[in-house]
């Protein structure tokens, strides 16, 4: 089996990403000080997703890995969305008797 060697990721890249992650954390905490209703939770989740993407693609080297890894991740996320989404077809529409 041939071995694909990855180029080392420069230290600066990692540090830049770390700075970005800290700033994003600051943004989430900042936004949470104001009450925007349901918007808050979506902002928090979007920022968290963005942070995860940074960790996945840079820290975890997903950027350098082959397509298979990315497809695997996508499959897992699709299954996750299905699990959550279909559970909600029950809990959001449950009939409560008077």
């Amino acid at each position: 089996m041939s071995e694909e060697k990855h180029e080392p990721v420069p230290y600066q890249t990692f540090i830049l990403i770390w700075v970005a992650l800290i700033i994003l954390t600051g943004i989430t905490v900042g936004v949470a000080q104001f009450d925007f209703g349901a918007v808050n939770i979506w902002v928090a989740l979007s920022v968290a997703s963005l942070k995860s993407a940074l960790v996945l693609f840079v820290f975890m080297h997903l950027r350098q890995e082959s397509l298979l890894f990315k497809i695997g991740l996508l499959a897992m996320l699709i299954i996750l969305v299905i699990f959550i989404g279909l559970t909600f077809t029950d809990v959001l529409y449950r009939e409560v008797l008077p």
């Binding site: 954390t25 989430t28 949470a32 928090a44 968290a48 995860s52 996945l56």
Partner: peptide, 19 residues
């Protein structure tokens, strides 16, 4: 280790920051 971090990235806003 990064996975541990990933979980926390979601855990933190969901438990500490909802308003």
């Amino acid at each position: 280790w990064h996975l541990v971090d990933l979980v926390w990235i979601f855990l933190f806003p969901l438990y500490y920051l909802i308003i």
